[in-house]
Design a protein around this nucleic acid. Structure first.
Length: 349
DNA sequence: AAAAACTGTCATGTC
DNA sequence: AGGACATGACAGTTT
């Protein structure tokens, strides 16, 4: 058997021949060798099972620890899976092909939608976010925001966003026209609502794009709300997840998702007051967008007609706090890294 | 209930 | 001057 598709990313032999492949006899001999007390493997580890780094009595699933590093690998795998998806689906049944990476069936999409885990949590660089933005502006709008926000929001073009319209949640929608004749449609809303709405817009390919939040009931956030200034309670209590199928064809996927979910950190800390302020003062962009948009985009927003001086000052303050929030995070991370490094150095002295 | 850990905010300084 | 960034300190939130 010869490999006919040379691909350096896959460890398939490209120049091997049948004679290079181990035969059944070879494998049997190898097993005997490994099983023997004086095996070469045991000699390598000096017959010290307790120090033997090779652990083979753990299932792969149990041994899997989801870290940033291997999630990056998963992203690459995901990309690869997508590339070969057509081929794979032609030889694997639909239920078998429903992996974590190429889930395309309806049930699995529902699971993604209803679980804490958003695909962008696993693949932050992927453009899964089916934001129903309609760019009506003649200007090219770019966003160079980074994916660092506490609530995991992806960078969003600050202008001409139309998160649209779920009036049942009490959102305000504004349409303004900038001096550059750019029609700006944005929803001034509270961050946490926006967060939920966007996360759940992942599977919008099957839903009405004008209503990305249709089908979900979001709590109303206002000053009277007990959630004002606080984080959401545990999702599993907050949303009824009993409808999530766990023992169907996608049980393995559900297990994997739950594993990643439980290993991930919950969002902690206080809920930003700036989303609330942005909503209260009818700013045309959200606090997150304000802090993440480019300086030129910010200038465009500040140039908008109809913005009071107070609103402009508020936008500047929100941006400063948003930037500082990220800076504080990185500062702490550096401090922790320094501390860890120092601790390690002391350990080896 | 108390403590530790985490996180947002403010003030201040520097570039 | 204004913005971005870094950092210490404080306080609210979560575990």
């Amino acid at each position: 058997m010869k490999a006919t598709t040379p691909d350096q990313h896959h460890h398939t032999p490209t120049d091997g021949s049948d004679s290079d492949l181990p035969t059944d006899e070879d494998l049997e001999e190898l097993l005997k060798e490994v099983d023997h007390e004086e095996s070469e493997l045991n000699r390598v580890f000096e017959n010290k099972p307790s120090e033997n780094p090779v652990i083979n009595n753990v299932s792969l699933a149990e041994a899997t620890v989801y870290t940033q590093a291997n999630l990056t690998e998963m992203q690459e795998l995901h990309d690869m899976c997508n590339q070969v998806n057509i081929t794979a689906s032609s030889v694997v049944s639909a239920s078998e092909s429903a992996t974590l990476f190429n889930v395309t069936d309806e049930v699995t999409r529902e699971m993604w939608q209803e679980s804490d885990l958003h695909p962008s949590d696993l693949f932050p660089q992927s453009d899964y976010m089916a934001v129903t933005a309609q760019n009506n502006t003649p200007e090219a709008i770019t966003s160079n925001g980074t994916f660092e926000h506490a609530y995991g929001l992806p960078p969003i073009s600050p202008l001409s966003l139309d998160f649209a319209s779920s009036s049942s949640t009490g959102r305000q929608q504004q349409t303004q026209t900038s001096p550059a004749s750019a029609t700006v449609t944005a929803v001034a809303t509270q961050g946490i609502l926006e967060y939920e709405g966007q996360r759940n817009s992942f599977s919008d390919s099957t839903t009405d794009s004008s209503s990305p939040c249709s089908g979900m009931s979001s709590p109303s956030y206002d000053h009277e709300s007990r959630f004002y200034g606080k984080l959401l309670p545990h999702r599993e209590n907050f949303f009824d997840r009993s409808s999530i199928p766990s023992s169907r064809n996608n049980g393995a996927v559900a297990t994997k998702i739950n594993r990643v979910m439980s290993s991930g950190q919950r969002k902690r800390g206080r809920q930003s007051k700036d989303e609330q302020l942005a909503s209260e003062h009818s700013l045309p962009v959200t606090a997150h967008q304000i802090s993440e948009m480019s300086l030129s985009d910010l200038q465009n927003v500040l140039k908008m007609d109809g913005l009071s001086e107070y609103q402009k000052q508020l936008i500047r303050k929100i941006r400063r706090r948003g930037k500082n929030k990220v800076a504080a995070r990185t500062c702490r991370q550096r401090r922790t890294d320094r501390h860890d490094k120092q601790t390690n150095m002391n350990h080896y002295i």
